[in-house]
Amino acid sequence: MSTEIPRIPLAGVVGAPVTYSRSPVLFRHWLDQYDLPGHYVPLHVGNDDLETVLRTLPRMGFVGVNVTIPHKVSVMSLAHIVTDRATLIGAANTLIFREDGTIHADNTDGFGFIENLRQSVPDWTASAGPAVVLGAGGAARAVIASLLDAGVPQIILSNRSRSKADALAEEFGKRIRVVEWVQAAAVLAEGATVVNTTSLGMTGKEDMRINLDGFHSGQLVTDIVYTPLRTAFLDAAEAAGCQTVDGLGMLLYQAVPGFERWFGQKPVVTEATRQAVLA
């Protein structure tokens, strides 16, 4: 009489490149913390191989993957089931492989963004006033969707390419007000919440060159960049008396739903989690 040996669950992050992803460190920390069987690995996958890889991974014992640049939009058409929030955002960052071979696509970036704000600043309320959002890329889509869902009355959106901002405004509706990039500095003061979703200020990228003198006390300012952890954007806001939230928490909290689904344990984000990833 044979006994079936349980398979060790495998998960990973799919992208190109994935060299600098901190997700493997994060997931290893949680797997060790909760003494769970499983592995989480970086998977460098080019555009031409994406579909083949995603169809093959479930047969190799993978229960799911996170998705990063440049595949967050492409995987939408390869999934069998797409959640409403992934559809709204227009991108997916979390794939669940079901036993029957179907791929379930979700987007937890917005959840991670809002949870980071709420845990870092417990008295933050979305309805306190308008939000200023800089950038109109994939991350901005998740941030905008989550802010609107949380109850922000208006989003003032500015992007270096005006056409991309206009497209988001048309898609998300009347609560979006678009301003030219050259006017971004002038509207910073209007935001109860101010968010940088661009790569400006990230290690290896261009600096944030807009004037940040509009920051003032009473604002909550966050930057989704976490390399470096403290950007010039956040330093300027802190100097002006704003509450600031770095971008690392968004990375940590967006990973919670996937980890729970893949490994059967809801992880708790703690200071030890942050330090493990930073190390």
Rank of each mutant, 00 (worst) to 15 (best):
Glu4His: 06
Pro6Phe: 14
Arg7Val: 14
Ile8Ser: 02
Pro9Glu: 11
Pro9Met: 04
Leu10Phe: 10
Gly12Ile: 07
Val13Ile: 15
Val14Gln: 01
Pro17Gln: 06
Thr19Glu: 04
Arg22Asp: 01
Pro24Ser: 08
His29Asp: 05
His29Ala: 00
Leu36His: 05
Gly38Cys: 05
His39Arg: 14
His39Glu: 15
Val41Trp: 05
Gly46Glu: 11
Asn47Ser: 13
Thr52Lys: 09
Val53Asn: 01
Val53Leu: 08
Leu54Trp: 07
Arg55Leu: 06
Arg55Trp: 12
Arg55Gln: 11
Leu57Ser: 04
Met60Pro: 00
Gly61Pro: 12
Phe62Lys: 03
Val63Asp: 01
Val73Gly: 00
Leu78Glu: 05
Ala79Thr: 11
His80Met: 05
Gly90Asp: 03
Ala91Gly: 00
Ile96Gln: 03
Glu99Thr: 14
Glu99Cys: 01
Gly101Cys: 10
Thr102Phe: 01
Ala105Leu: 04
Gly110Ile: 04
Gly110Thr: 06
Gly110Gln: 10
Phe111His: 15
Phe111Thr: 10
Phe113Ala: 04
Phe113Ile: 12
Phe113Pro: 05
Asn116Tyr: 01
Leu117Asn: 03
Ser120Met: 05
Ser120Ile: 06
Trp124Asp: 08
Thr125Asn: 06
Thr125Asp: 13
Val132Pro: 10
Leu134Val: 10
Ala136Arg: 04
Ala136Asp: 09
Ala140Phe: 10
Ala140Met: 06
Arg141Met: 07
Arg141Ile: 11
Ala142Ser: 13
Ser146Pro: 01
Ser146Trp: 01
Leu147Phe: 08
Leu148Gln: 07
Leu148Ile: 08
Ala150Gln: 12
Gly151His: 14
Pro153Val: 03
Gln154Ser: 04
Leu157Arg: 02
Ser158Lys: 12
Asn159Glu: 02
Arg160Val: 04
Ser161Thr: 14
Lys164Asp: 03
Ala165Gly: 06
Ala167Pro: 04
Leu168Met: 15
Leu168Trp: 13
Phe172His: 13
Val178Asn: 09
Val178Tyr: 08
Val178Thr: 13
Val178Trp: 02
Val179Ile: 15
Val179Pro: 05
Glu180Trp: 00
Val182Pro: 00
Gln183Leu: 10
Ala184Trp: 10
Leu188His: 12
Leu188Thr: 03
Leu188Met: 13
Ala189Arg: 14
Val194Ile: 15
Asn196Tyr: 03
Thr198Ala: 01
Leu200Glu: 12
Thr203Lys: 07
Gly204Leu: 02
Gly214His: 13
Phe215Gly: 11
Ser217Lys: 08
Gly218Lys: 03
Gln219Leu: 02
Gln219Tyr: 04
Val221Tyr: 02
Thr222Ile: 09
Asp223Phe: 02
Ile224Pro: 06
Thr227Phe: 08
Leu229Ala: 01
Thr231Val: 01
Phe233Asn: 02
Leu234His: 12
Leu234Tyr: 09
Leu234Ser: 12
Asp235Phe: 03
Ala236Leu: 06
Ala236His: 12
Ala237Asn: 11
Ala239Met: 09
Ala239Lys: 14
Ala240Glu: 05
Thr244His: 06
Val245Gln: 13
Gly247Leu: 07
Met250Ala: 03
Met250Gln: 07
Tyr253Lys: 04
Val256Leu: 02
Val256Gly: 04
Pro257Thr: 14
Arg261Gln: 13
Trp262Asn: 08
Gly264Leu: 12
Gln265Trp: 00
Thr270Arg: 06
Ala272Glu: 15
Gln275Asp: 15
Ala276Thr: 03
Ala279Pro: 06
